[in-house]
Design a protein around this nucleic acid. Sequence first.
DNA 1: CTACGAATAT
DNA 2: CATATTCGTA
Length: 254
Amino acid sequence: MREEDSNWFAKWEEELPSPEELIPLSQSLITPDLAIAFDLLTPNQNSNQPQPQTTPPQTNSSADFAVDSSGDEPARTLKRPRLVWTPQLHKRFVDAVAHLGIKNAVPKTIMQLMSVDGLTRENVASHLQKYRLYLKRMQTGGGGNVGESDHLFASSHVPTHFLHPTGRQSSDHFIPPFVPITASTHQPPQFLHRQMFTSQGNNKMDQSLFLARQSQQVLTRPSSLHLHSQVANYGEDLESGAKTALTLFPSREE
DNA sequence: CTACGAATAT
DNA sequence: CATATTCGTA
């Protein structure tokens, strides 16, 4: 009866992107605010990272989070770049929803399960709304043709139970903590726990991140499992330049 | 008061 | 079109 326990994990291993796909990730660009709050972004604290440009080329948004060196009033009217839902990220999302069961799948919970750095509840809520529409559309449309617009959603498998409301579909067994993909392999979780609220009035996002982190720690994982840093990555030199979209990892098809 | 979710805005 | 933000509500 304990075979199932290892099952989910084994499965996960398969699904995990190959190391090669994830390395190009360079930066710890969560929200500028957070990064600073966490003290993660100090100029020479990370020597293992390939020296990212700590200062984005853009003159525009960088000015935004020029930490109040001038006034006392923190201009925390910061606008975070639009999140880009890559197939991978969406996969993560679907998995979370699948494990929770449609009924329990609400933004906050999903977000926590996903434990993706920088993901906000709003991000998930918005995506969830759209995802539900997609599911609904699929139930009725059925064998029709899959709209071209549903590329993203079509990229990941939609668990059958999503489509028929036959009783209970939440995973019966206790939900194992999702493999948290966060900090690099060297960084002990406590590292983050420590300097939580160094900044004055932070917002609720700190909480979310904190929670996400908390759930990670105790977990015996197979050695074959690599933890990849999965941090936000800002599209910097997009064509238009002014875009500044938040992207999670390079989109790669399977 | 928090968080959900439909509607609405960018 | 994709994602964000608003706003009434549970």
